[in-house]
Design a protein around this nucleic acid. Structure first.
Lengths: 256, 256
DNA sequence: TTTATTAAAGTATTAATTACTTATATTAGT
DNA sequence: ACTAATATAAGTAATTAATACTTTAATAAA
């Protein structure tokens, strides 16, 4: 091709933001692992892996899911988020990160495995002002507060404490939250964390989580009117509960 | 990190879709080059380069612009599109493509250079049905017609004639057109091909090009009402022309 | 059977979009 | 200098969509 001056190829890392939904607490969850080795040993981070010769990046992202939760799940949706290439994003080495998002239809138990010291589901929450955070017991991580990529990496070189995620993962998470929020009105794939079908209230719960508002702040009747073109009715819930049974919907279109 | 089983790293290619606007014909332009070397020697393709050790992918994308048009332009906007990683996208080798888009504020003359046999601005056009194509003299290339990534690559292995672009560049272009079209209503960065400021009519010309409809099909008054929150008034045009002088606008927000 | 609960369905108001009309600022021709 | 032609800004009425709120319906438990 153009120019043979490839001095050295950077490492290609696949980073996957794995989402699920806890039906006990009605809260969104994100999978974080505690890194075993440098750089950022002992830091919490998004699950990562190196790409292998015979697999595509999409396949590598799926492999990450399998490594952390086992092979039990049969259907989940993975989509590309963006690629992060800033020179300083990994200390002392050059590493590209192809970031993906996976939406799991349930919240399976985790195993650290493959060199990670620990793995946990962190509870996702947001403020009305647009800040996002992940919490597990006393551990609490904020996504980046910078508005632009440029301003984020400008201050990135400084040493970061243990209250930060490894690498630029706080920025990657911010980009992910932003993307999901943007797509809520035309392609809310995040709803796949609710499984194959869902009630309008469950859908509103997910929406409310991203806006940092209570579910009841979103009117069910109006929500149906403005979003029903995205959903397809597939029956009525059979789950025994008090009150009128809710109708079930699924996403009308999963494709890009 | 997780696993040392990296057999071999794939090539990392930067692909850049460079857009401009021809004020003579009021048509959008895309830069294509004729490849000098294999794979796909003699095929027309999007400009590509390998990433170098000391530059970020963003910088490599900008370098591509400089190589093709020289160093004359001072301001242009580049943004990431997506990363293409399918196993079969390059014959006999493994190559990732980090795809970018650059919007040039004018339409400078081109030089092939850096191993390309030829380089030209191709006129972009679309149909109302959502098909896109690039034309230069008797050369005519369609973007992919597949609706999904999966269906595109399913039929990709078959030998492709010279009426196709190299690699999966027809698919990359399709994704680009789709992305630009989606962003017209909230972040129309494509308007940067019009330069720092533009009239509403010029903006409508660009919109109409992506919808495959004539400019006059978009009402100027209504367009202003629905889009003025994206624009900021910066004066009145000084270009001598018949009729009432148009007001000038610029994009209110360039940032992601 | 009654009450509490939950969600669906309906209604009236408000806001946004669309189609269309009028007014204004300029150039070119007489 | 006046008039016609042109191009765009600005305004208006009708339609459509979004929002706030109310009523109806289906279930579980007392």
């Amino acid at each position: 091709m153009d120019n043979p001056a490839i001095l050295e190829q950077p490492y290609i890392t696949i980073t996957n933001i794995i989402w699920s939904f806890d039906r006990e607490t009605d809260q969104l969850q994100v999978l974080l692992v505690k890194r075993a080795s440098n750089p950022y040993a002992d830091y919490w981070a998004l699950p990562e892996t190196f790409m292998r010769a015979q697999e595509s990046a999409d396949e590598a992202a799926l492999r990450l899911v399998k490594e952390k939760i086992g092979l039990t799940l049969s259907n989940y949706h993975t989509e590309q988020l963006a690629t992060f290439t800033h020179n300083d994003r990994a200390p002392g080495e050059r590493a590209l990160s192809l970031a993906y998002m996976t939406f799991l239809p349930e919240m399976p138990p985790l195993k650290a495995g493959y060199g990670a010291l620990d793995a946990h589901w962190f509870t996702f929450s947001a403020t009305e002002a647009g800040q996002f955070s992940l919490t597990y017991r006393q551990l609490h991580f904020m996504t980046a507060t910078s508005h632009s990529q440029h301003s984020y990496y400008k201050n990135f070189k400084i040493a970061r404490g243990r209250d930060y995620l490894a690498f630029d993962h706080d920025w990657i998470l911010k980009v992910a939250c932003q993307r999901i929020k943007n797509k809520l009105n035309y392609q809310p794939n995040i709803l796949l964390v609710l499984g194959h079908d869902f009630t309008l209230k469950e859908a509103r719960t997910v929406y409310a989580a991203f806006f940092g508002i209570p579910v009841k702040a979103i009117d069910n009747s109006n929500f149906k009117k403005t979003h029903q073109h995205l959903f397809k009715e597939v029956g009525t819930t059979t789950r025994r509960q008090i009150g009128r049974p809710a109708k079930l919907y699924k996403l009308a279109q999963i494709e890009e």
